[in-house]
Amino acid sequence: MAHVPQARQGRTETCPADTAAVISLRGAALSYGERVLWHGLDLDVRPGEFLAVLGPNGSGKTSFVRALLGQRPLSAGTLTVLGRPARRGSRDIGYVPQQAALSAHAMLRARDLVRFGIDGHGFGPRLRAGAVRRRVDEVLRSVGAAAFADVPLGLLSGGERQRVRIGQALATDPRILLCDEPLLSLDLNHQRAVTELVDARRRSHDTAVVFVTHEINPVLGLVDRVLYLAHGGYRVGTPEEVLTSESLSELYGTQVDVVRVRGRVMVVGAPDEVAAPPHHAELPDGVRS
């Protein structure tokens, strides 16, 4: 994969013509009322890049993904996705949402959920039924879910459901894959399986990956850059540049210690919000961050 030039806060990247950004933000800000989640964000994400999005609860990680999906307008600045303003319903964007209660979807089969990724959005030409079935089978095989293609989702484990959700997100062969906390509630083995699926996709198809996570260690060896959101600001760069005591202390305005032990990164001596449990705080208007 081509070398990805790094961006630092307040500095705009230069993007070579042969690696034009698929996501580009300039001076971007997002606020809820008087609460500023982040501002002044300059960022380019290129084909095949793996970007991890980190930060404490309420810092705007999920809101960042919603902005890319065209679901949440910026408060300031500009955002383009594949050279156009962000818009809803693009077949070029695959989306793996946070795991939620199955409720009405519990009896849907795995293949049904993947099929919705192909023809359930209402955009673009419709495939013939036979072509849809073949595509569903192909996608299920590619994510290792063929063995439980006809099993209701409610009977699958959390890791198996995440394989199916990734299959649904990849069903239209997207150029960008957005993953919002895909590792929540998964054990280490399933975390590894999910991250390997995502990494294999970006390497084989040059798909850009934006991966929101509370825990960097499962993807630390895969990511090209980290976008760390906190205190209305941000840091962006390689893990070695961003996940340092100096960088995070400057971002938080207080002493934060980053310790590396046996290849793992731990944040210690941090404000309460850094070490908050892995669930999302409510924002003023009831949406989650």
Rank of each mutant, 00 (worst) to 15 (best):
M1G: 11
H3G: 12
V4R: 13
G10S: 03
C15W: 09
P16H: 06
P16A: 13
A21C: 08
A28K: 12
A29D: 01
G33H: 14
V36L: 06
H39K: 12
H39P: 02
L41H: 06
E49Q: 10
F50M: 13
F50E: 09
A52K: 03
V53K: 04
L54C: 05
P56D: 11
P56C: 07
P56S: 11
N57D: 08
R66Y: 05
G70T: 02
S75K: 03
G77C: 09
L82S: 11
L82H: 10
G83D: 07
A86K: 06
R88N: 07
R88T: 15
G89M: 12
G89E: 15
G89T: 08
R91S: 11
D92L: 15
D92R: 11
G94S: 12
P97I: 02
A100S: 14
M107D: 15
R111I: 04
F116G: 01
G120M: 03
R126N: 07
L127T: 09
A129Y: 10
A131V: 12
E138G: 00
G144N: 03
A147G: 10
A147M: 14
F148Q: 15
F148K: 04
V151N: 00
G158R: 09
R161N: 13
R163K: 02
I166S: 01
I166R: 00
I166D: 01
G167E: 11
G167C: 00
L177D: 00
D180C: 07
D187I: 09
R192M: 09
D199A: 11
D199E: 15
A200L: 05
R202S: 08
D206R: 14
F211R: 11
I216S: 11
P218L: 06
L222H: 01
L222Q: 10
Y228K: 04
Y228E: 04
L229K: 01
A230C: 09
E240M: 09
T244C: 01
S245M: 12
S247Q: 13
G253W: 07
G253C: 01
T254R: 07
V261Y: 01
G263C: 10
G263I: 13
G263T: 12
M266V: 14
V268E: 05
P271T: 09
E273C: 05
E282G: 06
L283C: 07
P284M: 05
R288S: 11
